[in-house]
């Protein structure tokens, strides 16, 4: 696969993603925490962001169902698990606690590396450390 085919979709996707996060105010932790402040001064903006994104993606999934392979790739590589396990729920709960504390999830944190580097750098460094810690402590060893 040529470098252009390898890079064009992810770079364009990342660029649009960063635009969307910034336009919608999701790079502002106060706005995100405002959405989570359901019992206080609730700010519903994030619901509009999710709504808009899910709307477009729902259409994209319908198109995907009629395709045999992606436009710039050989095959689709998509998650196929359907079972619910304790790991999924415990992981999502830990993520939610961190999200509530700082008002940052991975996308806005990466966008903030250029918008507010002084705050985003320690957060992203800690996030990568947390990812590594999870791998070291929990990853199932696969026999090879």
């Amino acid at each position: 696969m040529s470098l252009t085919r390898k890079l064009l979709p992810p770079v364009a996707s990342g660029f649009l993603f960063g635009m969307g996060l910034t336009v919608s105010g999701m790079t502002d932790p106060q706005r995100v925490r405002g959405f989570l402040d359901l019992f206080g001064n609730w700010d519903p903006t994030l619901a509009f962001v999710m709504g808009g994104a899910v709307l477009v993606m729902a259409a994209a999934w319908r198109i995907q169902a009629r395709m045999t392979k992606p436009v710039f790739g050989e095959k689709f590589a998509l998650p196929d698990r359907t079972d619910l396990d304790p790991r999924l729920i415990a992981g999502a709960a830990l993520f939610g606690i961190g999200w509530g504390i700082a008002g940052l999830c991975p996308g806005p944190a990466v966008a903030s590396l250029v918008l507010s580097p002084v705050h985003a750098i320690p957060f992203v460094a800690a996030m990568l450390a947390g990812m590594l810690l999870q791998k070291v402590t929990m990853e199932r060893k696969v026999a090879s």
Binding site: V23, S24, L46, A53, L55, A77
Partner: peptide
């Protein structure tokens, strides 16, 4: 929020349909 959300949706759609 809605405009940003539509852009995020387009970004995700591009990754899905472009790169699979």
């Amino acid at each position: 929020g809605l405009i940003g959300g539509l852009l995020i949706g387009l970004a995700a759609a591009l990754m899905l349909l472009g790169a699979g």
